[in-house]
């Protein structure tokens, strides 16, 4: 795979977006540059033959993260943004110079390490690919994610639940509430017609996850993004979100995964050692519940944190 013109342009774009995301004076502009960085990096994942990651990057990296940043910038620019901006101007010259030298040294060390290591070493590729075939899961990434290193994913689901709990604790325990304000009729039409398609796509991603790119995280992020847009346009109003139910839905992913992990221990097998005959069924069930849980988490992280008292002027007056 030698260097194509597209690769060079993509890499130049990535570095340029990253630098301007850090250096631009205006906060909003730097976030827009970061979002375009996220989309370019989704392209980079495609060039590096990693479709699963491109899906996740587009949905989570550029989508949810970008939305969270824009929402925070909106609040912080009005709030103590000015104080922070002054604080920024006051970063002493020495800190800047020291930081730049340290970052340069870090880059030199990394570049030298990368250039002196044969990048094309076999590593775990063969073992993982044969293992995936053995286990009968066509998509090797899902095999690694939910079987060989399923314990990593279990802890990672815990990280997501932890993030929601942290955000709720910071809003002093208020349950997940749904923002609502005057909605743009055009967007309501689009979102209304797209909602079923989003639901279908999310369900397909979970189902296809075991054989082709997809899986719980990508489908959860997609579904979560759909719920966010519905929430922002106030179309979730009729469905009052009962705090108990929302908490259960948030914890369901982790609890399902823990149940799937502990069941083998009760049956005398090792932790997370699925029974061979039930492997695909268990993985699909866990991925399904996981997707629902992640969708609620992604939506909850955004809607819970975006409901701030002075959320005045969104949408047409």
């Amino acid at each position: 795979m030698n260097v194509a013109v597209l690769d060079v342009m993509l890499c130049a774009g990535l570095v340029w977006c990253a630098v301007s995301a850090l250096v631009k004076r205006d906060l909003f502009a730097s976030i827009v540059m970061f979002i375009s960085f996220g989309l370019l990096s989704a392209l980079a994942w495609i060039r590096l033959a990693a479709p699963d990651i491109a899906l996740a990057e587009a949905a989570i990296g550029a989508g949810a993260t970008g939305a969270l940043l824009l929402d925070a910038a909106g609040v912080l620019a009005r709030g103590d943004g000015s104080a922070a901006e002054d604080a920024e101007r006051r970063t002493p010259r020495s800190a800047n110079v020291l930081g730049t030298i340290a970052a340069g040294a870090l880059f030199a060390a990394l570049a030298w390490a990368l250039l002196s290591t044969p990048l094309d070493a076999p590593r775990l590729a063969a073992a993982a690919l044969t293992g995936a075939r053995e286990v009968g899961i066509a998509n090797p990434v899902t095999a690694v994610l939910l079987d060989f290193r399923g314990y990593d994913t279990l802890l990672e689901v815990a990280v997501l639940l932890l993030a929601v709990m942290g955000v709720m604790a910071l809003r002093s325990g208020a349950p997940v509430s749904v923002a609502s304000h005057a909605a743009d009729p055009l967007v309501r039409l689009l979102v209304g017609s797209l909602a079923p398609a989003v639901l279908l796509a999310a369900a397909y991603l979970v189902w296809a996850g075991t054989s082709s790119p997809g899986g719980a995280f990508q489908s959860g992020a997609l579904l979560g993004a759909g719920v966010i847009v519905l929430g922002l346009e106030g179309m979730l109003q009729p469905m009052r979100v009962h705090p108990g139910a929302s908490r259960l839905l948030l914890a369901a992913g982790l609890l399902a995964f823990v149940a799937a992990a502990l069941e083998p221990v009760a049956a005398g097998r090792a932790l997370l050692q699925y029974a061979p005959y039930a492997r695909k069924g268990v993985i699909l069930a866990v991925e399904g519940i996981l997707a629902l849980s992640i969708a609620t988490t992604v939506a909850g992280l955004f809607l819970a944190s975006s409901v701030t008292p002075d959320r005045g002027k969104a949408g047409r007056p």
């Binding site: 940043l69 076999p122 090797p140």
Partner: peptide
């Protein structure tokens, strides 16, 4: 991507998927 196996090494892909979700939690 650089591994000589017939398909890219899935282990780093799984690690990166985990990392992307953790980074989103960091942001939130």
């Amino acid at each position: 991507r650089a591994t000589p196996a017939e398909r890219p090494d899935p282990v780093p892909h799984a690690l990166v998927l985990t990392g992307i979700v953790v980074t989103m939690a960091t942001t939130a």
